[in-house]
Design a binder for these strands. Structure first.
Length: 618
RNA sequence: GCCCCGGUAGCUAAGCCCGGCAUAGCGCCGGCCUUGUAAGCCGGUGGUCGCGGGUUCGAAUCCCGCCCGGGGCUCCA
């Protein structure tokens, strides 16, 4: 039995003449049906009730997928070249109609055995046209789309690799005590990712004035009010400093490239990802979706000796652009314009590449740790070809050992990408969804494509192995992770907060009355000289109100300043992290905050210090 | 693209089912209070109820079409 199911805006048909010796009585004239599934049906030799049952269940599934239970069963012989006899076909079609009705579908029929005029309008969505071939045999020859054939070829084998080197098939791994990894495995391997609520960070990013949607731009292009810009800028600066410490040479390259450039063209053809296209005169440019292009073109022109390897090029792309499908964009998790640190290392050979990759793994762990995300917050995934694994088992195990927790493994039989191995750290959010932060890849293809060379000790030009690493992942996504992490704390009854070094206001001074404002300003200047961000709530509000506002802004240290403080120089500090009020001298407070800022960049508060002068961004 | 939810004051929402003076809280403005650790009190300001059409004596509310946003799904033949 063959079914061609078409989700239509309308179908119109008109019986013209009898065409078979077996036919049904037909009502003459045009008949029009709106918003209906047209089921073109051919009955084949050997079809029986078992086949009908299967057809009904296929149709029922389709009907619920497209959300329409109105169907028109339309006999259509042209779908098969081994048709059943007309008598049999009519019998089967009648059974088919009846069972569809029993299954609760609203069934319309067109008469069997007639030549009919048919016109229709098929809806423009991906599921609108579906073909099914149904037989009674065990092995259904269902319609297999090309994409699925490809999928078959890049079949993935899933394992858990534990730090001692044991590779365990995912289904036999005991996940107790590894809830995050379990969530990651489920997320990566599952087809359905349905979730009922919106991710919590979306509300938080708006309320805290960190980021918001910009309706006047394209989707996934965010705007960043002062506090958000400050936070983002601090993380950008921090990651950049760490990469430079590691040995990255910071460069800057254009954000758009000629679509017709020979190297880029072949790369793009290999990755038909959606891009933004910009026209200038009669040329077309695409907006970069990573730093690779600029860095490779630059590396192509460099003179590199084997003595200088590995050569590390770094750029913080603001922005990289990817035209992700609108439905994929959520808050700060996935954007169309995003900020990504990208550091490439040109390595002499695979041996050097492996050593370098271990260094970069440490770098990534350190960077995330410094930002405020530790190993409890993310899970490692490693993907590689079977070949690479077989000949580099020790190295792959070493990656997991350095990470210190079991990792999810995806293994491929063949290489379909430009890399032989990639690893990522995946953050798991409050809805159990995973997204990649840090990542690194071993690229064995692009040096040749871009003709990037170094000269070896014998004077021969050689193509290096290229590592692609983002030590933190997109900065926006890091902020998403921090907010989701804070929400987890809140959910468990704690007080959500950002790491102190990222908090726009680190200390809020609350004068008990306006006569203490001057003292607070003086105090704030003392704290500022220690590179601490501080502001003064000089509004004519009650102390309670001002404390509440500071709490809802997640200010980590709140000091109410009045007569007592002025006289004693001992402060009652509301410490958000511990949730208690601590008695501290100014020096103790400075020491504590400085200890939390150590090794992190400092930026001044880019908002009016006096709360009375501060506008709301919402 | 499809499905679901939404669009009412600067923000968050109620009202819509069952048509009858457009509501509340926050914010903002003014006044009182000079304040001791999570919302002080009083008053005021503020709205093309997303847009267009229809039904009706009368539409935020019912009907039709469209736009925008969010979420989910799916596809990338």
């Amino acid at each position: 039995m063959k079914l061609l199911m078409l989700h239509t805006d309308f179908v119109e048909y008109e019986p013209i003449m009898k065409e078979s010796r077996v036919f049904e009585e037909a009502e003459m004239g045009r008949r029009r049906l709106e918003d209906i599934i047209l089921v073109l049906t051919a009955v084949e030799e050997g079809d029986d009730e078992v086949v009908v049952d299967k057809a009904v269940s296929e149709l029922k599934e389709y009907s619920s997928k497209v959300g329409n239970r109105r169907i028109l069963i339309y006999p259509y012989a042209h779908l098969s070249n081994k048709l059943a006899t007309p008598e049999k076909a009519l019998e089967i079609i009648r059974i088919f109609r009846g069972k569809c009705e029993i299954e609760g579908m609203e069934v319309y029929t067109s008469p069997f055995g007639w030549t009919k005029a048919l016109s229709l309008s098929v809806k423009g969505h991906p599921l609108a046209e579906q073909f099914r071939s149904i037989t009674s045999g065990a092995a259904d020859t269902t319609y297999v789309p090309k994409a699925l054939v490809m999928e078959e070829k890049i079949k993935s084998y899933w394992y858990i690799l534990i730090p001692n080197g044991e590779l365990i098939p995912v289904e036999s791994f005991d996940f107790s005590g590894h809830e995050g990894l379990k969530a990651l495995a489920a997320y990566e391997m599952a087809k359905s990712r349905a979730v009922l609520q919106a991710p919590p960070h979306v509300d938080l990013m708006k309320k805290l004035e960190i980021a918001d949607y910009e309706p006047g731009s394209d989707l996934g292009n965010m705007r960043w009010p002062a506090k958000g810009r400050l936070i983002k800028s601090l993380i950008e600066q921090y990651v950049t400093e760490k990469v430079i410490e590691y040995g990255g040479m910071e460069i800057e390259t254009p954000i758009m490239y000629d679509l017709k450039h020979p190297c880029l063209e072949s790369y793009l053809n290999r990755f038909p990802a959606r891009q933004y296209i910009v026209k200038s005169d009669d040329k077309e440019f695409f907006l970069r979706f990573a730093a690779c292009f600029g860095q490779f073109l630059l590396a192509h022109d460099m003179q590199i000796s084997y003595k200088q390897l590995p050569v590390r090029l770094y750029e913080l792309t603001r922005y990289s652009f990817r035209r992700e499908k609108s439905g994929e964009l959520v808050g700060l998790k996935r954007l169309r314009a995003f900020t990504m640190p990208d550091v490439h290392a040109l390595c002499a050979d695979i041996q050097q590449a492996k050593e370098e990759m271990l260094r970069r793994l440490e770098l990534s762990i350190n960077v995330l740790e410094g930002i405020g995300l530790n190993k409890d917050d993310y899970e490692m995934a490693i993907r590689f070809t079977r070949d690479f694994y077989e000949s580099n088992k020790e190295f792959v195990t070493e990656l997991v050992k350095r990470f210190g927790k079991p990792a999810l493994v995806e293994m491929w039989e063949e290489r379909f990408f430009y890399f032989v191995l990639k690893w990522e750290f995946n953050f798991i959010d409050n809805l159990g969804k995973a997204s990649a932060l840090s990542t690194d890849q071993i690229d064995v293809e692009n040096a040749e494509r871009y003709d990037i060379t170094y000269v070896d000790q014998f004077g021969n030009k050689k193509h290096p192995i290229i590592l692609h690493c983002s030590p933190s992942g997109a900065i926006e996504r890091v902020i998403y992770a921090l907010l989701e992490k804070a929400y987890k704390v809140y959910k468990e009854g704690g007080k959500p907060m950002l790491p102190v070094w990222l908090s726009p206001t680190q200390v809020r001074l609350i004068p008990v009355s306006d006569i203490f404002v001057e003292d607070c300003v003086a105090l704030s200047e003392r704290l500022e000289s220690e590179q601490i961000r501080v502001d003064v709530d000089d509004r004519l509000e009650t102390v309670e109100k001002k404390v509440r506002d500071a709490e809802t802004e997640w200010v980590p240290y709140i000091i109410v300043f009045g007569k007592k403080e002025k006289e004693s120089n001992v402060f009652s500090v509301r410490d958000r992290e511990s949730g208690s009020i601590k008695q501290m001298t100014l020096d103790e407070l400075i020491k504590e905050i400085r200890s939390k800022n150590v090794g992190r960049p400092y930026k001044k508060l880019s908002l009016p210090k006096m709360l009375s002068k501060r506008p709301s961004f919402r």
